[in-house]
């Protein structure tokens, strides 16, 4: 009798050890379902973002204060050298300003000569970054502006220094912006003064890789990379970054490469390009 009791107890303990197996199998089933039916996953994420983005935003406040204090201290320590750097930069910018004014005048005159019709004005707004989604599958952020504020799918998102990403999902008051460095990101770009056309692809690292480079094209370190305007998602000429390494692979460092900005400027250029086809395909 006692033996039977101990045997039952042992079986029970062994079954307890195997309890995670159904959960593991269920996870695998969920994984297969979620990769095959993206729409349900998107819906779940949209609803959860609505709920959790404000919570994450509150959690990020102490972090922001800490970073602000650290930046202030750093600023105090580097005050002298920073002052010198800024005055040098100011001198340089003043000479650039004169050149820019001259070029603007020339451009106006030439536009008149060839009867150039300018692009329609873009609409923009600034939104706060509420949360960040960083997984091996994508790099995106949630911003505190949505359809009600005039954000639409395909809008370009800019940080302080350059292009940060593109709006991929919109809800009433929040939107998701996919970063240009994310795995899913593919940007038609032109490189340097030669305007070499290629594709900038993200791999979740802070850098972008240049692919589909035409044979014989010469790309050098320091070449500026801008959007080419192909596929009709971004207008031509938006600054993306600078070529950082030329070797077996050509990588570029984006202008917007220092973490996630606090605010993003969302710009609607009235272009939707291939995204329109995507919508129709759905």
């Amino acid at each position: 009798m006692e033996n039977k009791f101990f045997r039952l107890k042992r079986i029970k303990a062994q079954l307890k050890l195997l309890a995670p197996i159904p959960f593991l199998l269920f996870s695998l089933v969920l994984m297969v379902l979620s990769t095959s039916d993206q729409e349900i996953v998107k819906e779940i994420r949209r609803y959860s973002s609505r709920f959790f983005a404000p919570i994450v935003s509150v959690l990020s406040r102490p972090m922001e204060w800490g970073e602000a204090i650290a930046n202030d201290l750093k600023g105090l320590v580097m005050l002298r050298s920073e002052n010198k750097r800024l005055s040098d930069e100011n001198k340089q910018l003043l000479s650039w300003k004169l050149l820019a004014l001259k070029l603007a005048d020339d451009q106006k005159e030439m536009a008149k000569l060839v009867n150039y019709i300018p692009l329609p004005n873009s609409k923009s707004l600034t939104a706060r970054v509420l949360a960040e989604n960083n997984s091996p599958f994508q790099k995106s952020v949630i911003i505190g502006a949505g359809r009600n504020q005039g954000v639409s799918k395909g809008d370009a998102a800019f940080g302080e220094k350059g292009l940060f990403g593109r709006v991929v999902e919109t809800d009433d008051d929040i939107s998701r912006v996919i970063q240009i460095t994310s795995y899913l990101s593919r940007l038609p770009v032109m490189v340097g003064e030669e305007r070499i056309l290629c594709i900038a692809t993200g791999d979740n690292s802070p850098f972008l890789k240049l692919t589909s480079i035409p044979e014989g094209a010469v790309i050098q370190k320091g070449d500026v990379v801008r959007t080419s305007g192909h596929a009709g998602v971004y207008p031509s000429g938006l600054g993306i970054g600078v070529v950082d390494h030329v070797g077996e692979e050509i990588t570029l460092i984006p202008f917007e490469n220092q973490g996630t900005p606090e605010f993003l400027r969302i710009v609607n250029y009235g272009l939707i390009g291939i995204l329109q086809n995507e919508e129709k395909g759905k």
Binding site: F52, A53, I55, V56, L59, S60, M63, E64, E67, A70, N71, V129, L130, A131, E132, N133, N134, V141, P206, N257, Q258, G259, T260, P261, E262
Partner: peptide, 12 residues
């Protein structure tokens, strides 16, 4: 939840 907090000072 902390994994969703945006970090501004680092590129990682």
């Amino acid at each position: 939840l902390l994994t969703g907090v945006p970090i501004r000072s680092f590129s990682f």
